[in-house]
């Protein structure tokens, strides 16, 4: 579904992403992981059109989307969330999501249809509050997700959906992503630097370090990979082991 090939991004000579290639199959959840500064978010922004690649290609459902502006990537069927939530605070909650439904769809829909889709999506992600100002960290992450989903994407790019959440909220967020794939059949690329919870949900992982792919494969394989352990050593390594252990049981 998504084919990233030789993707490279240079910021004034600094190579943030070097020749990154990976593939995402329809219907899977792919974890794009790596420590802070490993180039995950840059890769993500290159796919989403927030940044233009220096070299390489991004093909989505057979068409080249590398270098397209963000709104066209959205119309092509890719929804994204932001690592730091970017709600439209002056708009109501439902307006936030309805805008995404109205402008993100690759078809012309009526306002009524946009608001109907917005309400469905808010129910799916389980936001109970009605006021953007009253949303906490977890609520804002859910709003990001709702806005991305309202554009009716085929592929969802979820950026650090767990950052800033407590353990229970992380579990809920992970379940939510799994449920979204299940209910809506949306393919997901999930970027995260915390490995724990993610490892139980994703089908495959791609591990980045210093802008390069250092490992790829099923979570259990990746977690045993010496290079990955070295990168995460002393931080998440025991957590990784525990997570993969839990999965096997």
């Amino acid at each position: 579904m998504l084919l990233v090939d030789g993707l490279t991004k240079s910021f004034d000579g600094f190579l943030a992403v070097k020749n990154v290639s990976f593939e995402v199959a329809e219907g899977e959840i792919l974890g794009l992981i790596g420590p802070n500064g490993s180039g995950k978010s840059t890769t993500f922004n290159l796919i989403a059109g927030a940044l233009k690649p220096t070299a390489g290609s991004v093909r989505f459902r057979g068409a080249e989307i590398g270098g397209l502006p963000a709104y066209r990537v959205a119309h092509a069927g890719i929804g994204r969330t932001h690592q730091i939530p970017k709600p439209f605070r002056k708009l109501s909650l439902v307006d936030n999501v309805a805008l995404a439904a109205f402008y993100g769809a690759n078809e012309t829909i009526s306002r009524e249809e946009a608001y109907r889709r917005a309400k469905d999506t808010l129910a799916l992600v389980g936001i109970v509050s009605t006021d953007v100002q009253k949303l906490g960290a977890a609520g804002l992450k859910k709003l990001e997700l709702a806005r991305a989903l309202a554009t009716q994407p085929k592929l969802l790019l979820a950026d650090e959906s767990l950052g800033g959440l407590d353990h229970g909220e992380m579990e809920q967020a992970a379940e939510l992503l799994a449920a979204i794939r299940g209910k809506r059949g949306i393919t997901i690329v999930w970027v995260e630097h915390i490995m724990g919870v993610l490892m139980r949900v994703v089908d495959r992982c791609v591990v980045l370090d210093h802008g390069e792919v250092i490992a790829r494969g099923r979570p259990a394989e990746v977690a045993r990979d010496p290079k990955v352990i070295e990168v995460y050593l002393g931080t998440d390594a025991p957590e990784v082991q525990a997570a993969t252990h839990a999965r096997r049981q």
Binding site: K90, L99, A105
Partner: peptide
Amino acid sequence: LALQAISEEEEAAASIGI
């Protein structure tokens, strides 16, 4: 609404297809 969204968070507005 779209322009209000743009005035607050231009990048997020673009990411939802505006």
